[in-house]
Structures are given as C-alpha cells and as structure tokens.
Design a binder for these strands. Sequence first.
DNA 1: GCAAATTAATGATTTATTCAAG
DNA 2: CTTGAATAAATCATTAATTTGC
Lengths: 219, 219
Amino acid sequence: MKVHQFTRGFWEHEPFLTLGCKRLRPLAPKLPNTHTCTTPSVPFDLKSFIKPDSGPRKPVSSDHNKQDPSSSHAQVETHPGGTRWNPTQEQIGILEILYKGGMRTPNAQQIEQITVQLGKYGKIEGKNVFYWFQNHKARERQKQKRNSLAFSHTPRTPTIHSVLTLETTRGEVVERGEEEDSPYKKCRRWVFECLEDQRRCEEEGRKTLELFPLHPEGR
Amino acid sequence: MKVHQFTRGFWEHEPFLTLGCKRLRPLAPKLPNTHTCTTPSVPFDLKSFIKPDSGPRKPVSSDHNKQDPSSSHAQVETHPGGTRWNPTQEQIGILEILYKGGMRTPNAQQIEQITVQLGKYGKIEGKNVFYWFQNHKARERQKQKRNSLAFSHTPRTPTIHSVLTLETTRGEVVERGEEEDSPYKKCRRWVFECLEDQRRCEEEGRKTLELFPLHPEGR
DNA sequence: GCAAATTAATGATTTATTCAAG
DNA sequence: CTTGAATAAATCATTAATTTGC
C-alpha cells in the first residue's frame, strides 16, 4: 500500500505547519451540531465547517467586500442574487430532442456546442446544459421506475413525445420561400449533426467528460 | 405542470425527428471479465486516444531511451502514458494540509489557485484537484464510519496528523540564512492565504463550485 | 532477483439524493 | 410541485504495491 509520507524534499524539514493547526479553528465554533452523533472527538471539530449542509445557511452576512477585485465584467448573471437558469421553450425543446435522440452524457465539446446554440435563445451556460442532462436522465429514470411499479403501462410518456408530435403535427407553416436558411433550419441541421456526432462517439466507446469547476465568479 | 411545447417559431413545423430513438447507450457496460476472472491484462489500445495531453508517449517503460535533454522543466515525473493524474508527494502533502486546514469543497477560484501551485511540483489539472477533494472527503468519511463502528472512541484522526507531526517534529533545519524566500516558504505563505480565504468563504456561507465540463478532448 | 499475477489504493465517472428557488 | 443546482454515495478503471513461482 502506498503510504503517504514525505519521503524527501520540500518542507519536510520546516516546522511551519503551526499555522495549519492553530489558526483555522476559530471559525464556526457555534452550533453544537444538530446532528445526532457527531461526537466532537476531534480537537478541531472540522465537522462544523465541513458542510454548510443546508442547515446553517446564514443569510449572507451582509459583507460584500469579498475579494475578487477583478470583477469588472458582468459576464454572467447567474448569481448576483442567486438566480438560476431559466430555460426558454426553445432551449428545452432542443435539449429534449437531443435527449430523445439518445444523448445522455454529452462530453465537453458537445456541451460547448450545445451551449452556443442554445445561447441564441436565451442566456445559458455550459453547466446548465450539463445539469439538465443529469437531472433529466435521473428523473426520467425515476419516472420509469415508478411507472413500472405502479402501472404496467402508462398512457403517457408525454415528455419527449409531446414535443415531437407537437412540432410534427403542426401543419401550419410560416411563410417560407426565400428564407431557406432560416434559424430553425440551421438549428435543425445542427441538431442532426450533433446527434450524429453523439452516435459516433458512442460507437467508438469514447467518453471523456472531464468535469472541472469553473467560474471563480471572476472571469 | 409545465408542458414543454413550442410556443412559436423554430422548427415547429418540420418532421425531421426520424432519427430519434436509435439506440440508447448501454449505461454501465458492466464488463464481467475485469473483476472476476482476472484475465491477463490485455493492453487496451482504445485508451490511446483518450488523452492527448502533450502527445502520447511511448508505452515502453525501459527508460534507457528517456529523452531528458536540456529541457528546462525537468520536474515532470508524470507518467508518460498520461492516462491519469499521478500525484507527487509534494502535491499530496499540500492537499492534505489544505484538507487538514478545513478545506473540503474548494470553489472554482480556489481550485484554480491550488492547481497553479501544485503545478510547480508536477503536472496537474484543475479537475484533479477537484476529484482529489471529493474522493478524499468521501474516503475519510468511510474510514471514520468504519472506525466508529469498530472502536467507540478514536482519539483523533491519525491520518492527517501524521503528516503534520511529521514535518513539525523534524527538528533538523537545513542551512538557511539567505534563502529567505525559498520555494517552500512561498508555498507556505500561499497555503496560509489559501486557508484564510477558505475560512472567509465559509463564514460568508458562500459556495460557488459550479461544475463545468472542460477539455473537449477531441477538440 | 525478476516479472507475471494478484491485491490494495485511488483517480475518474456515474448515479442517487438532497436542497432550495420560483 | 417542479426543477435547477449541488453534494454524497456508489461504481468503474487504472496504477502502485505486494506477492508468488521460477
């Protein structure tokens, strides 16, 4: 087994770690932990600041002097006050079509493309796309499980199909003619290519999501 | 209930969805061979395109051919094949100190800083840092649970402390004097600041991880 | 001593669960 | 109640450590 011990070099010969121990305790001293067990056996109850854990969600201690002096750009409005992505109908539609087309866990490149496309119909970030697929996949699974337990066949699997039928059944056509490369047409083509790429990726067994935390709120 | 329907525009009038349900990817292939029967490890060449990462090195391990000319950055002891991150002792050390200091889920900015710092001691990416904290946190939790089940009272967490004590107890000091701003010193300062920032973030209750897939891989 | 075979660690992904905005 | 966002748990997969037979 690999035991993590300093074998050599670096600060193995410097007693500078006093800071590690002494300092960082002072915060989150309060809250004797509403949790059940959590015996405060450790000298530093790391537990206390481990996880805000939805509990002591302190309401923004009114100090906005946070660092990040470089926030000169108002790039994303995702959370000035804690707003979250509010997808438009078009965005949802595209996403569901992609899902219907078999896309489940798009890789980074695909997410990037999707984000760019959907960005035409409303503000959106890559993580929104990522989360959407995660959630949609999970919730479709839940739904399926519930349905398979309760009824053997549900009258509906409306989520995707409704979208599909809706657009395939609408006979009305907005006047086209010279608008051969209208936005929806280009988007259509893109979706097709995107799913093609998806299929190709799957066949190659290649999957490379590579998560990475982004957006340090500045830049 | 929000019904996803196209309200207007777009491809609401085009029956192009024939490509829809072609085949969902087999989630979790569940290869039975790997674990049970221990077939001789066949070299999976399909990994060859997983990671570009400065070109795939030669798979041979005999190092007689190692290219180590006058490359200025010789601190790269990362495996040639470059499949997954192989942390150095220094990197692990820093990470454990940060963990010990209370850091659990660094936000994007912190991860970025950490990545830059650790990058001095070997190749590393942000996602590696992110994953390390995830895994370490989870496995410390497991360990703690196991211990709490076995023994009722563990005096304290030995894992991290061992690291700390190791370097704090080593009395020997390499001759310093004019080396006031040696790398380890700067790194020390950085660790301190990083934990300070961590503490500040926690006090504000601010958490902004914001996952995002990166590295298109295939370009 | 040495590689192949095996095992233990752990990096990387996926899935399940939870929290909270609206 | 729905669902975006986030985290935890479970799982997969690969590397290093260790063992084993020669």
